[in-house]
Amino acid sequence: MKDIGKHVLEKIKEEGVKPYPKWHFVIRQAFVWTFFGLAIFLGGMATGVAIFQLRHIEWDIYQHITHSLFEFLLLAAPYFWIAFIVLFAGFACYYFRKTEKGYKFSTLFVAGISFFLSMILGGILAVTVLPGKLDTAFEDNLEFYRWVEAHRHQMWMAPERGFLAGTIKSVSSEDRLEIEDLNGHLWQVVISEAVFKGNIEPVKNQRIKLIGHMDGRGQFTAKEIRPFSGICPEDERCCRSGRKPGQGRRFHGQANPDCPFGPPDNKN
């Protein structure tokens, strides 16, 4: 066997091989931790939007829209964001395993921790306006997102059962709207008796959901108008206090007299 050590020393001398500086390794680890943190943050953001969507689905009327809670959950689950949560948990797991000591932990443990951290961060972000803004931005700008999310709204396309969703095409008068439903059909909607739930104002291009009854082909009378993204308990409180819904054309800062939750509480 040849003297390998001697050969190596000669090669080091001839080729001027130098050890990598310490900062080379520090920066590499810093990058790995940064990517791990980024994956957790994005996973947290996805969790935040998923929580936002879950809070805004119509829990109060699920038994009218679907046959069971299970069917409702299957239809309304935020699959898009769940997929992102899993994806980013996977990235976080991958980068954690790339850290110096990351290999010592089992994949299941690391995946669990990554998922847990995303959940915690998502829970914190869910109380901010960020997830709602992100959801709206995606809805407004991404055709693909609208296509993926369509299943969550399709259960509202049942006018014969009193559920309709679509975009306001024109506001004919105080009591009448024209909307284009999710399948592209036009509807004349009477809103004179409608209760506005959540923070919503009937203006052109606003997407809304309606509860009421079908009067005939292309004719619908709304009893309730909801934001397209749904309402959450906070929105219901707004309705009770008459504050936010009143910002629109119907209530002018007064308590909503038609609010099905009754008159506003004094403590509000």
């Binding site: 190596v8 080091i12 091989v17 050890p19 080379h24």
Partner: peptide, 26 residues
């Protein structure tokens, strides 16, 4: 072959030399 194994060992030592400052003392 022995020669191939020696080549690998040489590469290992070069890497050890280059990465010596990345050695984790733990």
């Amino acid at each position: 072959s022995r020669e191939d194994a020696e080549d690998i060992l040489q590469e290992v030592y070069i890497k050890v030399y280059k990465h010596q400052k990345g050695f984790d003392p733990d």
